[in-house]
Amino acid sequence: NQESVVAAVLIPINTALTVGMMTTRVVSPTGAPAEDIPRLISMQVNQVVPMGTTLMPDMVKGYAP
């Protein structure tokens, strides 16, 4: 099972992602793949992402898996 990126903390809208904001988990439906964490760092979210929420590609500005 592939791990997806999950918010480790509450991420406010327009916040640039840091490694400490993200964790990985096997979830369904799958979100952004765990191996993309290095690409996701410094990208901004376009909505509030509550802690424990799977990071879906459409939540991150300019990100395409």
Rank of each mutant, 00 (worst) to 15 (best):
N1W: 12
N1L: 13
E3V: 11
E3I: 10
S4E: 04
S4D: 00
S4L: 07
S4H: 03
V5F: 05
V6P: 03
V6S: 02
A7L: 07
A7V: 08
A7T: 05
A8P: 00
A8D: 04
A8N: 06
A8L: 09
V9H: 02
V9W: 06
V9T: 11
L10D: 15
L10M: 13
I11Y: 01
I11K: 00
P12W: 09
P12R: 09
I13G: 00
N14F: 11
T15L: 06
T15E: 04
T15M: 09
A16I: 14
L17T: 03
L17G: 03
T18M: 08
T18S: 10
T18K: 11
V19N: 09
V19W: 15
V19T: 10
G20D: 12
G20N: 13
G20C: 14
G20R: 14
M21A: 05
M21Q: 03
M22G: 07
M22D: 07
M22F: 04
M22S: 07
M22A: 07
T23K: 08
T23A: 10
T24E: 07
T24G: 08
R25G: 10
V26G: 04
V26H: 12
V26E: 07
V26S: 10
V27M: 01
V27D: 06
S28Q: 13
P29Q: 00
P29S: 01
P29W: 07
T30D: 09
G31T: 01
G31K: 01
A32G: 00
A32H: 01
A32L: 15
P33H: 05
A34M: 05
E35K: 14
E35M: 12
D36E: 06
D36G: 04
D36R: 02
I37S: 01
I37A: 03
I37P: 04
P38I: 09
R39N: 07
R39A: 07
I41Y: 02
I41C: 05
S42K: 07
S42E: 01
Q44V: 15
V45G: 01
V45S: 03
N46Q: 06
Q47A: 07
V48K: 12
V48W: 12
V49F: 06
V49N: 01
V49G: 01
P50A: 10
M51Y: 07
M51I: 09
M51T: 05
M51R: 14
M51G: 00
G52A: 01
G52C: 09
G52W: 08
G52Y: 06
G52T: 05
G52E: 02
T53D: 10
T54C: 06
T54L: 05
T54H: 01
L55P: 04
L55H: 02
P57C: 09
P57R: 07
P57A: 10
P57M: 06
D58G: 13
M59Q: 02
M59K: 04
V60T: 05
V60F: 06
V60P: 06
G62V: 02
G62Q: 06
G62D: 11
Y63G: 05
Y63V: 03
Y63C: 03
A64I: 15
P65C: 11
P65W: 08
